[in-house]
Design a protein around this nucleic acid. Structure first.
Lengths: 232, 232
DNA sequence: CGCCAGTTTGACCAAGATCAACGCAAGTGG
DNA sequence: CCACTTGCGTTGATCTTGGTCAAACTGGCG
């Protein structure tokens, strides 16, 4: 999807030939390969904090396996999930010195961690890499703007339906969607309460639009009906 | 602020020396100067569409004077304003082929318009320029995430108070804030109705936290109280 | 088997939306 | 120059959506 690197930075299909030029000029390795080398693998257990709000932003991450949530808190504990990141997605890329939000493991998670300083040096010497990061960020921004519309103007059923379609599109194209996150996480992502999420899902089930084999799997029985809810 | 270019692209203080290197290598002009040269000035009257949702994204803009709103519509007409852009801000920078949202003039507006193709060619040859765009986009993304928290989890008074502080910070630091946009625009920016925005403002006025000399100016009489509302 | 965390359902409540006037200032035209 | 219109903005009365509070259910797991 929009912010995935695909399987590997060094995917031949990613090449444009530009990197080769830069490499020849600078005498350095292909930057995408070099980037992989400066990454280190980390594992986190369910609900572990990968970084906290206010931590130094000295690195960024790529999800290898599992799901990561980016959360923001209000003083009194109200929580919002800015984004979920799945396998292949990058996160924690920002140029503020402090993390504006926390990153937590939704379930067990494996990530690659890339130090910021070394990444900056690679970016200095490879325009393709710079463009790649720019491209990812622009994609995230576009997604954020769509989410603002959802949070600002959509009804509860519209939000839940959009969420199901987003997850269907992002995680797999199959009829059965895996939802690694809890109902609370979904609620905090959609700006609703857990009870409202449950009620809307139950409503969709009642109308035979979805089936809920278990709490973390949802089957889209009538995708058109769900799409209709979003555009209502 | 976070996405302003300052007075000019060619501000000496912006220079790092890197651009000079690239120029020497490529035999081209300083990219920030070159960028200014490819821009053309355009004017728009109040409520004019600068570009529409679905238009080709073949250029980006910088606000010279006035205020621009970025809007998204739902099929039934519900509207959301993703962002306001003031003098010095850039907008319309995206790498999708179609505009995901429209840009409109809030009042009379003057902008510079930069063609995308020519910009891309300049970026190809100047890493500082690439980094600059990246930096701006990251700033907008951070702002979008703050706004998602507002839209998803804040009460009406909190939203309005945050809005006043944002405008106070972004437009000028003075006690009297100019609000070029209508109440409807504010409502669509905050995910509220125009009536709620009015009522909350009237409430603040009643509590002597603000004064409203006229509909488009608001005086912050007790900034601390407003800040307290946000953090409640 | 029974506990525990997460989910679901129900009854009630409140924040903010909707609907409807009303106010007010800036044009506009007779 | 003043009645009239027009486009916002403000205020009030009422309604609805989704939140809150509380209780019941479910599926793992010791």
């Amino acid at each position: 999807m929009y912010k995935q690197f695909g399987g590997s930075f060094a995917e031949p299909s990613d090449r444009t030939g530009l990197a080769g030029t830069v490499m020849a000029q600078s005498g350095q390795l292909d930057a995408f390969v070099a980037l992989e080398r400066i990454g280190s693998r980390r594992s986190f257990a369910r609900d572990d904090e990968i970084y906290a709000e206010g931590d130094a932003s000295d690195c960024w991450y790529k999800v290898i396996a599992g799901t990561v949530r980016i959360t923001k808190l209000l003083a009194d504990g109200r929580r919002h999930i800015a984004e979920f990141h799945f396998s292949g997605d990058c996160f924690g890329l920002e140029d503020a010195s402090e993390r504006p939000s926390a990153a937590e493991a939704v379930g067990d998670v494996v990530v690659m961690r890339y130090p910021r300083g070394a990444t900056d040096r690679l970016v200095e010497n490879d325009l393709r890499l710079a463009r790649h990061f720019c491209h990812m960020t622009l994609g995230e921004l576009a997604h954020a703007q769509t989410r603002m519309l959802l949070l600002g103007r959509m009804t509860a059923p519209e939000r839940v339906a959009s969420f199901l379609l987003e997850m269907a599109g992002r995680r797999d194209g199959r009829r059965i969607i895996d939802l690694p996150m809890s109902r609370t996480d979904i609620a905090d992502y959609l700006g609703l309460t857990i009870e409202t999420v449950c009620r809307v899902l139950s409503g969709f089930k009642r109308d035979a639009v979805i089936a809920i084999p278990n709490a973390h799997q949802i089957e889209l029985r009538d995708r058109q009906a769900i799409e209709a809810v979003c555009e209502a």
